[in-house]
């Protein structure tokens, strides 16, 4: 089961990863981050993550630090 490691302390809430994930597994959370906006969360209850790295490649702020597959 593939997964990503997300460091929300670095998330600036640009939400580019939301569009990047082909499975729609990244969502806005209810926690606010450094910009005062909601940071993202990785929500993969059904184990759908492909480990495709699209989110990590898109993130401009190093907030997605690791991807495993």
């Amino acid at each position: 089961m593939a997964y990503i490691v997300l460091d929300t302390k670095k998330c600036k809430s640009c939400y580019l990863c939301l569009d990047a994930c082909p499975k729609g597994l990244i969502k806005k959370s209810s926690e606010t981050g450094m910009t005062g906006n909601f940071v993202v969360e990785f929500d993969d209850k059904n184990g759908e993550c492909l480990g495709c790295k699209c989110c990590a490649l898109t993130c401009p702020d190093l907030a997605i630090t690791e991807v495993y597959k």
Binding site: L16, C59, P60
Partner: peptide
């Protein structure tokens, strides 16, 4: 490292 660029700025991607 914590990038100091604006949210969504592609400098961060380029640097990576």
């Amino acid at each position: 490292a914590k990038f100091t660029f604006c949210p969504g700025c592609d400098h961060g991607v380029a640097l990576r």
